[in-house]
Amino acid sequence: MTENVNHSQTALLRLLQIMDELRANCPWDRKQTMASLRHLTLEETYELSDAILTEDLNAIKVELGDLLLHIMFYAKIASEQEAFNFADIANSLCDKLIRRHPHVYGDEKTDNEQLIKQRWEVQKLSEQPEGKRSALAGVPRSLPPLLKALRIQEKARGVGFDWENKTQVWDKVQEELSELNHAVILDDSEAILDEFGDVLFSLVNYARFLDINPETALERTNRKFISRFQALEQAVQADGLLIHDLSLEKLEQYWQAAKLLEQQEKSDY
């Protein structure tokens, strides 16, 4: 344990020194601001997400390093402004983790995961300024909408606002689908937009009760469609044809063949 800690400390100190040197000597690094780094940080986060989805451990290591670099960068810029430094970031995080884990560092012992999550949200809410406390305040405005819906629902659940069971949630999905269908019949574009959003929000809720991540489920379907469509393209090209010259019926035949090929490859694997 001690050896691992010493090794990590040495690596961290090396990285801090390199960050100082880059900031002082590299024209590109020297001109960066928090605002200029923001979109790059988002890009690095998505690259890490891709590596996790493909279960590429080496890529995960590399992308985690890139994110750590960005954290170091923000800390360096803030230290130049005499706002905070890397140690302040780490200590603030340590204090928060201890404060929000009373079942580990305090007397509120429990093994109930749901109760732990509820306590976390209640503690987080209590840390907000009085008069501005909201269970949803911690949901970033710039989150992708699907993920934001999930986080909103999780935050509401953390303070006790939730459905009792998945049957209730599925009934709500059916209700929202019926309202969407009614809006479509009326050809009311504003109502269609609202009701379609309600359908998606209720489906995210249902995914949560099924204990699946809707982002993961949708990305899995995205990748599946890409794989099948590219197989369809290759088959059409192999036959010397062009997709836009084919009828929908013929394209459906290629699509079904692509699905069958995918199933065979899975069974062979």
Rank of each mutant, 00 (worst) to 15 (best):
I116N: 01
D66R: 02
L147G: 11
E130K: 15
Q81A: 14
Q230L: 09
K250R: 15
E63S: 04
E249K: 13
Y206S: 01
L218N: 09
E175K: 15
K132V: 04
H244E: 15
K96G: 01
V173P: 04
D171E: 14
H244G: 00
E219P: 00
Y254W: 03
L67E: 02
A59S: 13
L125E: 04
L260F: 10
L261S: 09
N85D: 15
L242P: 00
E190I: 07
E233V: 06
L53T: 08
C26E: 07
L210R: 09
E164K: 13
E252H: 14
R228C: 08
L93V: 14
L143F: 14
T10W: 00
H7E: 14
R38L: 14
F86W: 09
E219F: 07
G65E: 02
I243V: 15
Y206R: 12
V169D: 01
E262Q: 07
Q230T: 10
L210E: 15
G240V: 06
K132R: 13
N25I: 00
K250S: 12
K124P: 00
R157G: 07
N58R: 13
V204Q: 03
R23A: 05
E130P: 04
K266T: 06
A135Q: 05
H39M: 11
L146R: 06
M19K: 09
Q168P: 00
R141V: 13
E215A: 15
L210T: 01
E252P: 00
L37H: 11
N85R: 03
F161V: 14
N85E: 12
N6A: 15
L232K: 05
S79E: 15
D56G: 02
A87V: 11
N4H: 14
K166H: 14
A257F: 03
Q128I: 06
R119K: 13
E44D: 03
K96V: 08
A83F: 11
R119C: 03
S178W: 05
V204L: 04
A78V: 02
L93C: 06
P214A: 12
D66C: 07
L242Y: 11
L48W: 06
E219G: 01
L261E: 15
K76W: 08
Q81D: 11
R220M: 11
A258W: 00
D187Q: 11
D171K: 11
K148C: 06
I116A: 03
L57F: 04
K148E: 07
E80V: 01
T33C: 03
I226W: 05
A51D: 07
I98D: 08
I192N: 01
N165V: 07
A87R: 13
D211G: 02
A235L: 10
W170S: 05
L93F: 15
K166W: 04
I60P: 06
E249Y: 06
H103L: 00
L48H: 07
A51L: 03
D211Q: 12
A235H: 01
D268F: 01
E190F: 12
Q234H: 12
A87F: 07
